[in-house]
């Protein structure tokens, strides 16, 4: 059955505290951090972008999977901060991990759920025997306009998943999606920063699509919250996934392990995929995981995942999500602004 053969993440080393951003804009930092549930966020170094983050995560995923990268038949990268507008990031990443030239590749964009859309595409290619392995990556170096609410959460990081059929570390039992035209967040061509509908990003956008995605998959599978040990929801901030859990009746302890947003912020296309990786780092064989990603614009992808015994022989090969979270250096707002190029050198 189709599943995850290997996975890997990458989170840049630099962090800025929510209170340090709030100080610049005259906000109450403690109140903002508590309100958003985001206490610090990751940011890319001056020589890091989606290509470098994706390559590092993909190298970890291939090592974890213990496969020959030449057997990967498809590379798809979901992001809203690809370094080139025209020239696929996947071409750079495929070369950097030593893929064969005889494979297919494309970049995906669907706000924060482009990475899980890539997972679904790889599932289709693997199930139809068009490829042996597919590599799906979600990564971003998210930008928030200086002074905008998004600046507190827009972060950098990514996760890569090798999808295949032989000896998966976790089986993907089923997936389903919801898609509507809901303009809650967008960025027009040539614009440096995204725009959003403020409170409109909540009820009609995130909550509606994630809830509908979850309900659809429960119905399709004939399962309920009680059948799962862990839940992962897209994390635009620390508040939304917790509120979503309450609506769906998910016990707090089943959601807690996925909430990486508190330590690294919202890594956009990487968000739910890094959350899933943190759960896979610790979940026992036989555990079941329910994940729902969300992408503005808007849509959600829901997945039902079962952890297999195989996972035990792969752990310890590459850094875990917690290893990357622990490796950090704080920077001031001025260094952050320099690295994000909001001040020109």
């Amino acid at each position: 059955m189709v599943g995850i053969i290997g996975y890997g993440v990458y989170i840049p080393r630099y962090r800025i505290k929510t209170v340090d951003i709030a100080d610049v804009w005259g906000d109450d930092g403690e109140a903002v951090a508590q309100g958003l549930g985001v206490f610090e966020k990751s940011l890319p170094g001056p020589d890091e972008d989606v290509a470098t983050i994706s390559a590092e995560a993909a190298r970890n995923a291939v090592k974890y999977a213990k496969i020959d990268p030449k057997e990967i038949g498809a590379v798809y990268i979901g992001s809203e901060s690809h370094p080139y507008a025209v020239k696929p990031t996947g071409t750079i990443v495929a070369e950097a991990i030593g893929c064969s030239e005889n494979m297919t590749c494309a970049d995906f964009e669907f706000a924060c759920k482009a990475g899980t859309a890539a997972v679904q595409t790889c599932m289709g290619l693997v199930t139809s025997k068009m490829v042996k392995y597919g590599l799906a990556i979600g990564a971003d170096t998210a930008q928030g306009r200086p002074g905008d609410a998004l600046e507190y959460s827009a972060a950098a990081g990514g996760a890569a998943y090798v999808i295949g059929e032989e000896d998966p570390v976790a089986t993907i039992e089923a997936t389903s999606s919801v898609t509507t035209d809901t303009p809650d967040f967008w960025r027009r061509e040539g614009e440096d920063f995204p725009s959003h509908g403020a409170r409109f990003t909540g009820e009609p956008a995130y909550f509606r699509h994630v809830e509908q995605g979850a309900t659809n998959l429960f119905k399709k599978m004939g399962t309920s919250v009680d059948d799962y040990d862990y839940f992962v929801f897209h994390m635009p901030n620390g508040k939304f996934p917790v509120a979503m859990g309450k609506v769906l009746g998910v016990p707090k302890e089943k959601l807690e392990d996925s909430l990486v947003v508190r330590h690294i912020g919202n890594t956009y296309s990487g968000s739910s995929m890094v959350g899933l990786a943190r759960v896979l780092d610790i979940a026992k064989p036989g555990s079941r995981i329910f994940m729902v990603s969300y992408g503005s614009g808007a849509g959600s992808d829901a997945f039902s995942i079962r952890v297999e015994d195989e996972i035990q022989s792969h752990r310890g090969e590459v850094p875990t999500v917690d290893d990357y979270i622990a490796r950090k250096t704080y920077v001031s707002y001025s260094v952050y602004a320099k690295y994000r190029r909001t001040i020109k050198a």
Binding site: R315, E317, P319, T320, D323
Partner: peptide
């Protein structure tokens, strides 16, 4: 480029 080797839990 090169970076210091990092901790890998369970290695």
């Amino acid at each position: 480029k090169f970076e210091p080797t990092m901790k890998v839990t369970g290695h």
